[in-house]
Design a protein around this nucleic acid. Structure first.
Lengths: 235, 235
DNA sequence: GGTAAAGTATGATATTTGTCATTAAATGAG
DNA sequence: CTCATTTAATGACAAATATCATACTTTACC
């Protein structure tokens, strides 16, 4: 990680509007600016590690980050992504437990760090902030519960279709309708919870069924509705 | 549901000490007493239904409750249990979305209801309460993320062993080392995320391996450490 | 540009798990 | 108590998925 940071001040930070800091006033933002530090992380770098204590709340200014947990046999499980405006590492502080996931950079990222001490100060002093956090945490929990059900009950192919749609929601499509993030087949397998070979085979099937097109790591979505039906997201 | 309620006042409620209401002072508890209502629910009754709007926060005084979601093909997925001191239905209010799970009574339960309006008042007026809630929600999210990984990566047998241990943690063992809750094989299958037949077969295997004993719905844990190893909870 | 390394693709096979059918046992209502 | 209904157990089979082997392709790097 480099210390050089291109991020603007919190007051003018474009990532903040949609973030958990959206309700802070000018004074609070000036404070936050003083307290925060920032870092530039290259692809593949680890921002924080499962099992460690969190240094604070990490807020992504730009770039793409995956959050993954170690499975029981040492296999990675990707449980979430973070990008512009998303925060990470706070859950561990709130639940007073070690970090439950590792944050790894997928595309070069600028990430600010709000130190733990100031984070707790903010929570205590700013009810609006802690309410924002509460709402966010509740939503994350909701989403996680839904994912439990899907993981437990859906077939691998259904889950793969669902993950492609999740990636689309998270990172959007580029001008050629391709999912705007580059993941290896192995990483996709680590989202779906299956073997890499299975993902490769099932992607080929989806291609045969004209639902997607493949060009290396680029995945073009040809029939989103078809994927929605396949993923069993509607009846 | 009957309106008759045996629960004592909040101030003397034994279920409150370990609950999210543990930090309220005498005045606040008197207020809470005024606002809350209570109900007696019989086995099999539904306290609230997935998809509806939450009427408020439900706090279990006694009895046992399962929280389950509808899977994509109409199959139940049990995602959590609630008993003495546990609260339910608040996540929906926090995330401003319909209830994500259905609460069904496993053993006759007395459950208090704190109306939505007063719940939000409490959050706004009592930072200690919202902090408690934040911590609880963070823990629940943590646990859910861990479960995602387990569901995605563990074999059915590993998951079954894990669920038995989870039930032991949640409901404890009776004087004969039997898990202190009665669930059908189908309900266990709906925790594990598999077919009923698979659970029946795997329970027999665990019995052959001297890890458990079966007498109807009663499951005696003979070798907890063996189950921990099988569940892949240690390396 | 060439070479090693990593990632992708595909086939063969073994294992696990789901599904359907049937019987046995337990439970509950009258 | 007895019958009807639900739940549990077991077998047979089909389907899905993991694993191993191998070939091909792309990428990164000297």
């Amino acid at each position: 990680m480099s210390e050089k940071l291109l991020a603007p001040s919190c007051a003018t930070c474009g990532a903040r509007d949609a973030s958990v800091f959206c309700n802070l006033d000018a004074n609070q933002l000036a404070d936050l600016d003083q307290q925060k530090s920032g870092g530039l992380y290259k692809k593949g770098e680890v921002i924080f590690n499962e099992g460690c204590n969190s240094r604070g709340l990490f807020c992504v200014f730009d770039g793409k980050v995956k959050l993954s947990m170690m499975g029981p046999s040492g296999k990675e499980q990707i449980v979430r992504f973070a990008q512009k405006g998303d925060v990470m590492g706070y859950n561990s502080m709130l639940s007073r437990s070690p970090l439950s996931a590792t944050a790894t950079v997928l595309e070069d990222a600028q990430v600010c760090l709000v130190p733990a001490r100031y984070f707790f100060e903010l929570i205590k002093k700013e009810p609006k902030f802690s309410l924002e956090l509460l709402e966010l945490t509740a939503k994350n929990w909701n989403q996680a519960s839904r994912l439990i059900t899907d993981m437990a009950q859906k077939t691998t192919k259904e889950r793969l279709a669902e993950m492609l749609l999740w990636l689309k929601e998270t990172f959007g499509l580029d001008e050629e309708d391709c999912i705007d993030v580059k993941l290896s087949r192995e990483e996709i397998a680590n989202m779906v919870g299956t073997a890499t070979e299975a993902v490769i085979r099932l992607l080929s099937e989806l291609k045969k069924e004209k639902l997607i097109e493949l060009q290396g790591k680029r995945i073009r979505l040809l029939d989103i509705h078809g994927l929605v039906v396949l993923a069993n997201l509607i009846d």
